[in-house]
């Protein structure tokens, strides 16, 4: 048994339970948006989501058994990817729209008011339509999200101490549990063995697109902050500074 010591089915039900609740922006949006008002709504929502993300991460079986340093590094490296994958999942049944929250839905064209954000919206919409094409299942979605979290820092740090080495080995075993769980979820779709292997490849290849969009988004947010288009503060500021 891997680090989690539980069956793939049990692992998946645990990470589905860990899913954060729907989050609402709770602002009266004045349209048409200005660059400042759209960026302010986007960052307000991101800050709220980040708080729930940390609570979510702690519910991923085995995460809190990792060293605190690893927990911080993992979240620091992947937070925007996780936010973006959640956005794609919420948007998967709404072609051409980005469902940031039930009370904050944007059409692609509405991004025209923010310099440089249309390209990012287009990449997000393209990845979302790929997930739609693949008919992404909720069980697969939660596995991909856990994979992004646990895989985010595994190649950038080399353990120096025995504690770090132990934590890294735990992390690698945890990643195996997630891969096992994703393979199990795919095996439930009634596909041939070869189709299952291809699907696993299609889904994991999308992770590199998500990392790419996240990097673009990080650069864009840093630019918006540097130009004082939007005030970034609290947890979002901490995570942005750590990532740039």
């Amino acid at each position: 048994a891997h680090q989690s010591g539980m069956s793939p089915e049990e692992f998946i039900s645990r990470i589905i339970e860990a899913e954060p609740p729907d989050i609402y922006l709770m602002e009266d949006l004045k349209k048409p948006f200005t660059e400042a008002s759209m960026m302010m709504s986007l960052t307000n929502l991101a800050d709220k989501e980040l708080v729930l993300m940390i609570s979510w991460a702690k519910k991923i079986p085995g995460f809190v058994e990792l060293s605190l340093v690893d927990q911080i590094h993992l979240l620091k490296c992947c937070w925007l990817e996780i936010l973006m994958l959640g956005l794609m999942w919420r948007s998967v049944d709404h072609p051409g729209k980005l469902i940031f929250s039930p009370d904050f839905k944007l059409n692609r064209e509405e991004g025209v008011c923010v310099e440089g954000i249309m390209d990012i919206f287009d990449m997000l919409l393209a990845a979302t339509s790929r997930f739609r094409e693949l008919k992404l299942q909720r069980e697969e979605y939660v596995c991909l999200k856990a994979m992004i979290l646990l895989n985010s820092n595994v190649v950038t740090s080399s353990p120096q101490t025995a504690e770090e080495l132990e934590s890294r080995n735990k992390l690698l075993r945890l990643l195996d549990s997630v891969i096992d769980a994703l393979v199990w979820a795919i095996s439930k779709l009634g596909l041939s063995t070869q189709e299952q292997t291809l699907r696993l490849g299609h889904l994991t290849m999308l992770l590199s697109h998500i990392r790419h969009v996240s990097n673009k988004g990080m650069d864009h947010l840093s630019t918006m902050k540097r130009k004082n288009v939007v005030l970034v503060y609290d947890l979002l500021l901490e995570m942005l500074d750590a990532s740039t």
Partner: peptide, 24 residues
């Protein structure tokens, strides 16, 4: 220490047993 300094809020939320959802 520098890591915890740089990630004060993240560090606190990771250590905090009360989940933010309950706090909210």
């Amino acid at each position: 220490t520098s890591l915890k300094e740089k990630h004060k809020i993240l560090h606190q939320l990771l250590q905090n047993s009360t989940s933010p959802v309950d706090l909210a």
